[in-house]
Design a protein around this nucleic acid. Sequence first.
DNA 1: AAATATACATTGACAGGCGAAGTATTATGC
DNA 2: GCATAATACTTCGCCTGTCAATGTATATTT
Lengths: 111, 111
Amino acid sequence: MSIASDIIRGHTDTIILARLAAGDSYGYEINKAIERKTGGRYELKEATLYTAFRRLEESGCITSYWGDETTGARRRYYAITEAGRRTLQALRSDWEDARLLIDSLTAAEGY
Amino acid sequence: MSIASDIIRGHTDTIILARLAAGDSYGYEINKAIERKTGGRYELKEATLYTAFRRLEESGCITSYWGDETTGARRRYYAITEAGRRTLQALRSDWEDARLLIDSLTAAEGY
DNA sequence: AAATATACATTGACAGGCGAAGTATTATGC
DNA sequence: GCATAATACTTCGCCTGTCAATGTATATTT
């Protein structure tokens, strides 16, 4: 991976919620979507992804249900909840703030 | 603290190096500068700060020396090295990339 | 028949951040 | 004069998110 994980760290939940805000999906698909969207420059590790699902479900941001595939491997679908949408809004807002802050603190000028 | 730590996580080194790129300084002062610069919205925790100093010194990005204060508590000053400046450049470049990536992955549109 | 792709899950280790507590000196308010 | 706050650095142990490794199972491709 070309992007340092420690910088992306903490955005996993936001990324997943942002994807689910556009419609229900499942782990494998979400990861492929991220890979596609970043031109292969980034992907969530499976362990990270499924850990995040547990975390988000536990905190009531998402719910899950088994798909009814008649063929292929079974899929566990995830859906964002109202609470999840509110959380997503808050996380996006946090990100706006943090981006400005980090820009300011790591800039070449101003010290 | 109003900014989620996990979002700032991974930027500690960059913040410190950016500050030291403007001239030698010491822990307490660096932290106060950050507090000032962010209007009190952010500060590094002492443990985080000094852990980062150890890490950066270990990796050759900074060097340290005791100040010759005749009054007040002793201060350990830090100076950025050439390697440190190169690292800083790389970290800033990483940040540019990551910022775009995160923006794209957490945006409302595009899924 | 073997290899690859799809799909989910768990375990154990690691690293960074941080709360808490401690040490020491100087400045300030009463 | 004395308590309190500010300055300044340090270490210990915990918590959390990430991830390598490994395992399971099915479907498709070669």
